[in-house]
Design a protein around this nucleic acid. Structure first.
Lengths: 237, 237
DNA sequence: ACCTGAACACCGTTCAAGT
DNA sequence: ACCTGAACACCGTTCAAGT
């Protein structure tokens, strides 16, 4: 460890107050937003804060715990209308779109949100209000539980997939390669896909090469959300 | 690099034939299944194969490319009924359950499947048959695209979330801690949640502490799938 | 309580050299 | 074509020591 590990112009250089856990989480979130998940190392973050890497451990425990705290921030950013201001179906659709928007604001965190268990109370206000609305729609018991899981699982999961990480630039022309592979597919073996290729190419899961970061799938999300809410509506009778 | 990096009893010790790309991918899949995603390093995998780490690079390019190839294997394992054997809605539900089952067979890969762009032709047969069935249900054009994305995004995303990674054992009693936090929630601030706590605790996204790996969410998945298919059915009229 | 400084046991990857 | 062997530039984390 050399003195060069400390930043010459870190945020800490100006403010000589001691580090805080909150400050570290804020810095980590900004870091991931700007430079990506892979670039976040304890050493690089420490340098950004003008501090030795090991100082972080005193505040946040471990890198995994830091990341978990950072991803929890996303749920605080979800802005919801008050319960009762909207009919239940409009409220749920609104909630879903607000969740998606919050994740889209931090796309580099999507892999964490989507694949790490959320064990934080910061999401509890959101949970509470969803339950209130579902009860308002006439749901209770097991049925309420399953509809809740359907909605939350759909939103968080679908958006995680939408924002998938693109392969690194190991092979440069991989996008063109994949596009070409799709275009030259055997139309005898795959008649339906080749017939709909202009529709599917780069627009559908498994036949796209741009991530939702570059090419958001707004229309498909709205459609999926509509189908799910329709399903709930139908099941209420 | 010392000679100890090579395995003393690796699979390679017995078979002296040269490595192959397929063999490496197979070994990596088995490795991840047994020892987890974090345990997979190029060095450890090389040792398992009785070879120097750098030998892997000649065959698979890079670790990211290897992981992408490994996760593609999951889609080959999805067993589907022939198109036309079932009504469209039953076929789609079957497809969804088979996809979920395939991912559940390799839960440690869920984070990769859920958060890395799929750019492989191994999933094309699946795509083809889904389109055939959707066309059979009377869908075409944009509507077909959106329903396709709704279904695939739901299945892959929802299951990724279901199989979320649990926090490491940094703090040992974190499960009890979280459970206690939930139980001691203010019932004035969170009346709906506290009222339904026995229903929600460890059964719902954001209020559970066991991953779907230990505690599969079968009922909720089936319910969600049913709601979505109901929605599609309703939208066909 | 909070941070430094050194050290440990790893990583992924490149590249020249061998066969 | 396929693999070895050494080396580079990193990692996360622990721990004793300082203030």
């Amino acid at each position: 460890m050399t003195a060069g590990d400390r930043a010459s112009r870190g945020a800490r250089q100006a403010s000589r107050d001691p580090l805080s856990r909150e400050q570290i989480i804020d810095a980590a979130l900004a870091f991931v937003d700007e430079r990506g998940l892979d670039a976040l190392t304890m050493r690089a973050l420490a340098q950004e804060l003008g501090v030795y890497p090991t100082a972080l451990y005193w505040h946040v425990g471990t890198k995994a715990q830091l990341l978990s705290a950072v991803s929890a921030r996303i749920f605080e950013e979800v802005a919801l209308p008050g319960a009762g201001e909207l009919p239940w179906d409009a409220w749920l659709a609104m909630m879903a779109r607000q969740c998606r928007a919050a994740i889209h604001r931090h796309p580099n965190l999507a892999p964490i949100v989507g694949s790490h268990l959320v064990v934080t109370t910061t999401a509890i206000p959101l949970v509470e209000r969803v339950i209130v609305v579902l009860e308002g729609a006439g749901l209770a018991g097991e049925e309420l539980l399953h509809v809740y899981n359907s909605l939350i699982g759909f939103v968080l999961g679908w958006v995680t997939l939408e924002l998938s990480i693109e392969p690194a630039d190991a092979e440069e022309g991989w996008k063109d390669d994949f596009a070409r592979q799709l275009r030259s597919l055997d139309e005898v073996a795959f008649p339906a896909l080749t017939r709909n290729m202009s529709l599917m190419a780069n627009n559908a899961f498994m036949t796209r090469w741009d991530s939702g970061r570059a090419k958001p799938m707004d229309r498909s999300f709205d459609a999926a959300l509509d189908l799910l809410v329709r399903g709930v509506r139908a099941s209420l009778r």
